[in-house]
Nucleic acid binder design. Structure first.
Lengths: 179, 179
DNA sequence: TGAAAAAACGACCGGTCGTGCTTTTTTTGT
DNA sequence: ACAAAAAAAGCACGACCGGTCGTTTTTTCA
């Protein structure tokens, strides 16, 4: 009963990498199966539908994001060190050479932005909001500690934080500007 | 000899709107033909390939962007008024209710970011760079006129300008936050 | 070790994709 | 008005899509 879950993890891990480059729709069962060296039907049996595979894949991506970006940052002392760690870890996440295609959430957000509501879209939205909230929380703590101006708008700070990340992501991935 | 070009324009205009929502790959010939009330082959005869259609469509999008955002802004007096107009016109472009799906270039950029080079990708990159340059130029003029600090880094300003735009676009389209 | 259960497989389904080729309809210039 | 030219339609193709199903292989556990 363990072998199944093990392959399932392998599938999700590969799907995660593949989807970062080709998008959520661009990720095809045949292509994924080929990459894994297994049959399409054998792969598909692990999931009830492609949508469920996408959802599970995004969940593993979230877990990885928490493990690599959020958790280590929030282990830093509150205030400026934590905000700086957040920035630096997030930047690393977007440029990790092991993850071609950059941040899946950036790709997914652009892909789903004006689409109808769907479980996948709802999940991406909720994750994005949770992330903005986490950044805002770190900023508020930095105000309390005295590292930031007392009148700082934490939500606005999180918004601009995201903006810099998106612009950096685009410059790095699209324009291939290493700066 | 005029009817052909006229239909061609209609096709490109509709393709432009459709691609903003569904992306460059998501835009299908059958769907586009259906939207136009014409046959897939009749439509296809206007272009040698789908790639050429995508390119032509992006060119019309660029023309529209210049006409609606850049040209009117650069008619404003140099300095702060011009920069403000740039910001405001650009914001309007991203929220134009006539263009569901927001800015095609944002969608295309996310879709193509880590893909191999292609004529379409090259075009999007060149347009993005030209846009950043235009913003930087406006910023430099604002420095000359004395509206901005003398030591302003114009390229950095353009980068952050883009960041705010991207974050705004995402918040508006994905999170549906009207703020 | 052998039977039950889980996992992987291969063939196949209806449908859509982009793209040719041929024919019909519409527009154009005389 | 009529022939030449342009535009649109019709049809078919091979490839790929997500998904189903019955069979075979592998794993698990008694």
């Amino acid at each position: 009963m363990a072998k199944g879950l093990q392959t399932r993890d392998r599938i999700l891990d590969t799907a995660f990498r593949l989807a970062a480059r080709d998008g959520l729709e661009g990720l095809s069962l045949a292509g994924l199966a080929g990459e894994l060296g297994m049959s399409k039907s054998g792969l598909f049996a692990h999931f009830g539908s492609k949508e469920e595979l996408q959802l599970e894949m995004l969940r593993t991506a979230s877990d990885l994001f928490v493990a690599k970006v959020l958790a280590p940052s929030f282990r830093q002392p509150r205030g400026l060190p934590r905000v700086k760690a957040l920035f630096e870890n997030w930047r690393r996440w977007a440029t990790d050479p092991g993850l071609p295609g950059g941040c899946i959430f950036v790709a997914a957000a652009a892909e789903l932005d004006d689409r109808d509501r769907s479980p996948v879209r709802d999940y991406v939205v909720s994750q994005q909001q949770a992330l903005l909230q986490a950044v805002a929380r770190a900023a508020r703590l930095a105000v309390e500690v005295g590292h930031f101006r007392r009148d700082l708008d934490a939500e606005q700070f999180a918004f601009e934080f995201l903006g810099i990340y998106l612009a950096f992501h685009q410059s790095h991935r699209l324009l291939r500007d290493p700066r």
